[in-house]
């Protein structure tokens, strides 16, 4: 119940700063326009790239771009902010689990996007008879991505500033997640390696699932669960080690 309140507080905060929300939508729109314009120019000569014609490429890019609203890097910097400000000490004496409260915060932060994206998501998923599996993949991926970010956030115990990491993730996500282009237009051996990376699972794999061109959903769910467990245990280990290094003054 207490985690529900945390999520609700985040929703309220998001709704309070509506201007910020609007700017976020607008920035994504610019990003999407840029990618679509480039690929539109490539397809203008009427070529097809592997299995993609102009229409399917646009559908893929729009879905992967919309998905990137949900998979953002805020949880990666949460711990760093707490350590830097010394507020971690306060959090530690509270009867809450830091990992769970972070997940609740992230869920609350993304709740508005979930609501907005739910209807198109259901339409796409229903079109291809993968409704239940798609929903499960979607939820598991959300937790997996959060676990990855939470695990990486523990570097804050050893680094003074973690903000330079944000653009690193953006670059990695754009490339390995298949936001700039579908990963399956890459040479087959490269694609086989890249498709199982966590960024591809939340970007490329989910977009392919929603466009109905993915039949191994169950396998991807299993891989995602596996990653979630690995990242969770790594988070636990590194958080424990980091706490030994942490010094908080005052409460």
């Amino acid at each position: 119940m207490r985690y529900l309140y945390i999520a609700l507080t985040e929703i309220k905060s998001k709704l309070t700063y509506r201007f910020d929300l609007g700017v976020e939508f607008f920035s994504k729109l610019i990003e999407l326009t840029m990618t679509l314009a480039v690929w539109n120019a490539v397809f203008s000569s009427g070529i097809t790239i592997r299995d993609y014609d102009k229409k399917s490429m646009i559908a893929y890019l729009v879905i992967s771009s919309v998905l990137s609203f949900l998979y953002t890097f805020e949880p990666c910097f949460r711990l760093g902010k707490l350590i830097h400000s010394g507020r971690l000490s306060v959090q530690l004496i509270r009867p809450i689990n830091l990992w769970k409260s972070g997940l609740a915060e992230q869920t609350g932060r993304k709740a508005i996007y979930f609501i907005i994206l739910f209807i198109p998501f259901v339409i796409f998923a229903k079109l291809h008879n993968y409704f239940v599996l798609s929903i499960i993949l979607f939820i598991v991926n959300f937790v997996m991505f959060y676990s990855l970010m939470a695990f990486i956030s523990t570097v804050a115990f050893w680094l003074e500033n973690t903000w330079p990491l944000r653009p690193v993730f953006s670059a990695v996500y754009s490339l390995l997640g298949g936001i700039l282009f579908p990963l399956d237009i890459l040479p087959e051996p490269v694609y086989r390696i890249l498709v199982y990376n966590p960024f591809a699972l939340v970007g490329h794999v989910t977009a392919k699932t929603l466009t109905g061109s993915n039949e191994n959903i169950a396998l991807y769910i299993l891989i995602s669960v596996f990653y979630t467990l690995i990242f969770y245990f790594l988070y636990k280990i590194f958080f424990k080690a980091g706490l030994k290094k942490y010094e908080g003054v005052g409460l």
């Binding site: 490539v42 000569s45 680094l159 330079p164 990491l165 653009p167 754009s174 700039l180």
Partner: peptide, 30 residues
């Protein structure tokens, strides 16, 4: 802030690398 400087440097190179890779992919089809 040496570590921050190193990370900043790496991220700039990564952006650079992403742009170059994207260019190679686009021009392999057109």
């Amino acid at each position: 802030y040496r570590s921050t400087a190193v990370i900043t440097l790496i991220f700039s190179f990564m952006f650079f690398a992403v742009e170059i890779i994207f260019g190679f992919i686009v021009y392999s089809y057109s």
